[in-house]
Design a binder for these strands. Structure first.
Length: 497
RNA sequence: GGCUCCGUCGUCUAGUGGCCCAGGACGCCGCCCUCUCAAGGCGGUGACGCCGGUUCGAAUCCGGUCGGAGCUACCA
């Protein structure tokens, strides 16, 4: 009987969520959902010096924002908990003891300095790694070390044979015998290290597929050796399958640095990325859904995703492309939904009273409902709504005329505004097409001004900007009274002279 | 140095021996549309790192070479 498919995402809560890490979460999630597997969310907080509760909370926030849900793990529980390693210390101590008793691991008293000194003395490169010296510690030596106050780390004995596995994305990978030194699984004080806790939890949580970053590829032979030991001890059924996802690169030819703001998931959220857009773009980092298509939803990804199709090449995080994908998702949103997404950035900029649609007043809702469709095709990021829609919410006498808009006005602008005012004053119905028609007749036809020149002063008067949503539709939404007041205000502006 | 991974347009990729003098997307350039800006439409730019081999035929298979990356902790 084959064991059920189970995947996991197991970050360390250090720092802010990184897009590379989230890409890993996404691929695990997508593969789990595609195969009907169980998706486990575990926290690897075994390093008190670096882990933080704040970071843990941000991880939850990130996955929830993106819609990556999990079946077992922190917050939701499950049969293999607890799901924070800091709460599983007894388990690691027990496993470590069993490993030593069975001879898979041994106490190692050597300090890094001593190891290096031995390498030098033997004429070997000093940075060769641990030399296996303590494999043969005698009881007498052990007593002497202990008496001298030394506390041993535990190391796993690496077998003297090649270690091979079939990587889910790279195919067969072989590490030559002798190339991987015996590795530490606990600190000198007995605290377990990642090298122990990660495979132990994968074993006890019955993880079948390990999908992780390429940076962990070289630690795989060690984990396989440990898994085999656990199987022999009867603590585990089998060694999981491994798949190593390509790096997410930044500028130049290096991994996207944690220092780079682009690596910060929340940086993108704050700029106005849609979760749909970011998920879609992240999916493209090492995978593609079809030869001629790159805009898709999370559920379409789930339907199509197979780890065997993942490309092993490192992928560069390209903001321009990410924004283009996001823009496509903006246009895919139903107009009403798009309007709702605008509320938060607008509120953050002080333009509307509340951060949620339902708490907006009727006037704000009406403006947004009418204005949102005007900008939906014109935006890449939600944050751009602030600049594009700000004039709708500003008082008529406080519309901010940007210098670039003022600079484009001609000497004849005042006459144009006056003619426009006259035409608008006599207008019956106040609809975009009526406004357009009246203005066309009064300015373009009667005065012989090119449309472009005729409407530029009006655009500045009404919106304060050089670039704006469509003018006539904007005027309809704003209403006759506001428009007349704004045109009059610009007409009287001293700067026009 | 050792070990391991990777190598198709600037970038992300499609491609698993003939459909490829290599397809799509982003970017960039041009044109159309047009009240600004977008969107949209049309067109253009641009790549199989190199050398051998296998084969009637190679981006695809093999060998070598060059280049890039990661790891080489009592971090994860």
């Amino acid at each position: 009987m084959s064991s059920p498919t189970r995947l996991r995402f197991c970050p360390s809560p250090t720092g802010v969520p990184h897009v590379g890490m989230i890409r890993t979460a996404l691929f695990n999630w997508a593969y789990a959902r595609h195969t009907g597997a169980t998706f486990v969310f575990r926290i690897e907080d075994t390093d008190p010096a670096r882990d933080s509760e704040e970071s843990y909370l941000q991880l939850l926030d990130a996955l929830r924002w993106l819609g990556l849900d999990w079946d077992e793990g922190v917050e939701v529980g499950g049969p293999h908990g607890p799901y924070r390693q800091s709460e599983r210390m007894d388990l690691y101590a027990m496993v470590a003891r069993r490993l030593v008793e069975a001879g898979f691991a041994y106490e190692s008293f050597s300090t890094p300095e001593e190891v290096e000194a031995r390498h030098r003395a033997a004429g070997r490169p000093p940075k060769l790694g641990y030399d296996g010296y303590d494999r043969s510690t005698t009881p007498e030596q052990r007593e002497a070390y202990l008496a001298a106050g030394r506390r041993p780390v535990l190391r796993v004995r690496m077998p003297d044979q090649d270690i091979a596995f079939d990587d889910l994305v790279r195919g067969r990978v072989v590490f030559k015998a002798g190339s991987v030194p015996d590795f530490a699984i606990t600190r000198g004080g007995g605290q377990p290290l990642y090298t122990l806790t990660n495979p132990v939890d994968d074993a006890f949580m019955r993880i079948s597929h390990v999908l992780r970053g390429e940076d962990l590829l070289s630690s795989t032979p060690r984990q396989i050796v440990l898994h085999r030991a656990l199987v022999e001890l009867g603590l585990s059924q089998s060694v999981p399958l491994f798949g190593h996802l390509p790096y997410v690169m930044g500028e130049g030819n290096k991994k996207l640095s944690k220092r780079d703001p682009q690596s910060n998931l929340f940086h993108h959220r704050d700029r106005g990325f849609l979760p749909e857009g970011l998920v879609n773009y992240l999916a493209l980092l090492g995978w593609s859904i079809a030869p001629d298509r790159d805009v898709f939803t999370a559920s379409e990804m789930v339907a199509a995703f197979d780890v065997a199709d993942v490309n092993p090449n490192p992928a560069r995080f390209d903001l321009k492309k990410a924004e283009a994908i996001n823009a496509a998702h903006m246009r895919l949103l139903a107009p009403a939904e798009f309007a709702r997404r605008l509320v938060r950035p607008l509120h953050l900029a002080g333009l509307v009273a509340a951060p949620e649609w339902d708490r907006l007043d009727a006037r704000e809702q009406a403006i947004l409902t009418a204005a949102a469709p005007l900008v939906q095709q014109r935006m890449t990021l939600l944050g751009e709504a602030v600049g594009m829609l700000g004039f709708f919410f500003a008082p008529d006498d406080a519309v901010d005329f940007e210098p670039a808009a003022l600079a484009r006005l001609l000497p004849a602008s005042r006459d144009l505004l006056e003619a426009a005012l006259a035409a608008l004053l006599g207008l019956g119905a106040w609809t975009a097409s009526d406004i357009h028609g009246a203005l066309d007749a009064a300015l373009v036809e009667a005065l012989g001004v090119k449309p472009r020149d005729a409407f530029t002063p009006l655009r500045t008067a009404v919106t304060g900007r050089r670039v704006s949503p469509p003018l006539f539709e904007s005027m309809e939404i704003l209403g006759r009274e506001s428009c007349l007041a704004r045109v009059e205000r610009l007409r009287l502006l001293p700067e026009l002279d």
